[in-house]
Amino acid sequence: MSGRPAGQDPADGSSEPQGGTPEVVASQAEVSDAVLAERLRQLSQRIDAEKSVKQSQTVAARERDMTGFGKAMRLSADFIAGVVVGGGLGWAVDKWLGTMPWGMIVLLLLGFCAGVLNVMRTAGLAPQPGETGWQPKDGPPRS
């Protein structure tokens, strides 16, 4: 304590009013602000890193949880749902507008496309709706 110049220690600052204490205190505050900002930055970096790790872990876990049977059920349900909705819509349109075969033909084909799209999305081979910056995986998902 005796070896250090007066005023450098903030605890002593109040007991020694002489010798430019205000500037010293100000610089002290500045330093601690900078240190605090640095700490805050490091903390947010650590949180971000942890978050991204968590994210990738949950995605990996989700893929791993799909057993063969579960995957088959899911993919077929997705495909059938697309075709059924397309066919149903076509039937309804025909019923309302009286365009007998055409609505069913067109919408059934579109439903077929939607079914394929559903399957590709479930398998991770196509982007989710509204997703930007999507990169295709380098191969079909693990089974």
Partner: peptide, 22 residues
């Protein structure tokens, strides 16, 4: 857009069919 709309409408079907069928 038509395909996307049908794909969206098929979600409740596939969601319910999956649980019920299993």
């Amino acid at each position: 857009t038509a395909i996307e709309v049908i794909s969206f409408l098929s979600r409740p079907i596939s969601l319910s069919v999956r649980l019920f069928a299993n």
